[in-house]
Structure formats: C-alpha cells, structure tokens
Computed example of a mutant assay.
Amino acid sequence: MQFAPVATLPVRLLDRGRAVWPGALVCAAIAAIATGIGALAPLLGSAIPAVVLGVAVACIRRPGPRLAPGVGYAGKFVLQCAVVLLGAQLSLASIAAVGLESLPVMLVSLAVCLLAAWALGRALGVDRDIRTLIGVGTGICGASAIAAIAPVIKARSADISYAVSTVFLFNVLAVLAFPAVGHALGMSPRAFGLFAGTAVNDTSSVVAAASVYSASALGFAVVVKLVRTLMIIPISVGLAVVEARRDGEGGRMTPARLVRLVPWFLIGFLVVATIRSSGALPDGAVAAATQLSVFLVAMALAGIGMSTDLRAIRAAGFRPLLLGGALSLLVAATTLATMALTGRLG
C-alpha cells in the first residue's frame, strides 16, 4: 500500500517547509477567498472560484521558483488529504438503508457514462486523461471524483481545470432543468431524490435541485449522492491497475500486487468512512471534517489553477465541452429510463 506520503510527512515538512510554505500560503489565501464566494453563492461553491482565481493569478504571473514548490504541494498532497476527509460524509448505515432502491439505477447510469466517455471521447478525439476526468466527474461526484482520480492517472493541471469547469457548467444547467422535468413527469419527492442524487454529480447542486423541488426530496437525494461517492473506490483501483500496465508494470495481477496499487489516500478515505459509520465521530467532528475537506479541495484547486497551462486548454478546443454535455444528457436519460423500467419513476 502506498503509505509513504503519510509516513514521511514529518520529515518532508521539516526538510521542505521553507520551500513549501510561501506557495501553500498563497493557495490557502485563494481558497479562503473562494470559500467566502461560495458562502455568498452556495450554488457556485468554492471549487470553481478557486480554480478561476488560481488561473487568474497565473495569467498575471506564473509561480516562480519561490512559489512553485508550495503550489505543487497543494495541487497534489493537499488534494489527497482532502479526499481522505471526504469519507466523513459517508455512513455505512445510510448506504444499507438506500440499498436496492438506488443501487441498480446508480450502477447502470455509471456504467453507461463511463463507457460513453471512452467511446464518444475517442470518437471526438478528446485526450485520454480529459475524457477520463470528465467521465468520472459526470458519473460519480463532480470535483470530488476528479480530485480523487487525477493523482491516480497523473493528470495535468490543465486537464483537471478543464474537467472541473466542464462538469460544473452542466451541474448548473441540471439545477435549472431537473425540477421542471420532475414536475412534468409527476415524480414523488422520493423519486425525484433518486433522480437528482443519481444524475446530478456535485453535492451542492444535488442539494440545490432537490431543495427547489421539495423539502422532502432533499434527504433522500443527499443519501443517494453520498452512496455514489463510494464508486470512487473501485474506479480508482481499476484505473490504478490500467496505469500500472501502461507504465510497463504488466503481468499477473496477484492480490498482493493489487493491494499495493491502491492509493494511500483511498485507504484513508475508507478508514474515515468506517469510523464515521461506527458512531465514534461526534456530529461536530463530522461537520468540521466536511468543512475542512471542502477548504482543502479549494486550496488544491487553487494550486492546480496556478499551475494551469492555458495554451494546453486552448489546444483542447471545444470537444471536451461537447463530451461533457453529451455525457450529462446521457446520464439523465439513462437514470430516467432505468427508474421507469424498475418501477421507481412515480
């Protein structure tokens, strides 16, 4: 298992602290501003403002030797720590309660999304990493999934920025369109909660869409959304195996080798989720961990934004945006179709 980043953290902080803190402090300041923006505009959240502000800073002046180490640290290790803390939002009891009602719909929509991301992305000529990030961001949980997958596939900062921005755009459109779709189809609050929790990927957008529809739809939608977060684990492990083979580390996949491929921060994610489920974490600690994870994601995305190569984004063109739109429509349509076939649409 890849525990080296945690095991060597004290030594690395002592050895590199002087080099890291200036850039990390700038990223934290940007994250604080983005958090304030997110508090004023909950639908916007803090992730997009953090990326945008980071890119704006990079446009004015790209990080030099003094800031670059800390900016890179924020974009990688801080990002991994944020993923660990995301586990505090999950309760295994809630997952069991959701059970068969949501899992078939969720798994079908996820499978269709990932297959379409691969096939349509290739047809459009979208870079492999961008289509992977947009696919998992659309199919699982937006910026959080992108944050978890990016270090596994060693994605570039430009690809991460593009993917986060693309997924966010269609989140906003879903918040505006989904309540109207739900009312047109005569969905019950529970049915709409399943629809929104499965087909809208970012937590804040799920909350916004469900709240607009009805207060009673909100609780179920959030639980479904958090269950979707669990899909980060198998997808990340699968991608880690694929990356190992692409890097020339092919061969028979033994259990021991598979365990070594699991990123350390995903193990941490599961551990935190298990502790949360045991009831050992008081509500205040869960709330604090959730808020801290949101801040660390903003801090990491600020670093990613500051590291972004705008020329690479311009070179990518409009095709990734087209891919994101197609996947969002496909996930919504697949969710509705599966709900209808399983008798959960009413």
Rank of each mutant, 00 (worst) to 15 (best):
I267D: 00
S46G: 12
P179W: 03
A88G: 05
P320S: 08
A4W: 10
R156E: 14
F3M: 12
F77P: 03
A7T: 11
A148G: 07
V242Q: 02
L296C: 10
I160H: 02
R128F: 15
T308A: 15
L270W: 00
F295P: 03
V331A: 06
A111G: 13
A337G: 06
Q80D: 12
L292C: 13
F168H: 07
L79K: 11
R62P: 10
V167H: 04
L270Y: 00
F195M: 13
A119S: 14
A177D: 02
G325I: 12
V126R: 05
V207Q: 05
V224T: 14
L292Y: 04
A221D: 07
G87H: 03
F295D: 04
R319G: 10
T35K: 13
G87N: 06
A221F: 05
V297R: 05
A312K: 14
L40Y: 06
K154C: 08
A240L: 01
R62A: 14
V242M: 05
S109M: 03
V181F: 11
I95M: 15
G36I: 04
S102Y: 06
A244L: 00
A39M: 12
G45C: 09
N201F: 07
L336K: 04
M253Q: 08
W118A: 15
C59G: 13
G186H: 09
I304S: 05
Q2I: 14
L100R: 11
V57T: 08
M299Q: 08
L323A: 10
S328C: 11
V262C: 01
C59P: 02
R311T: 12
G279E: 10
A288P: 04
V241W: 01
S328I: 07
L100T: 11
S293A: 14
L86G: 00
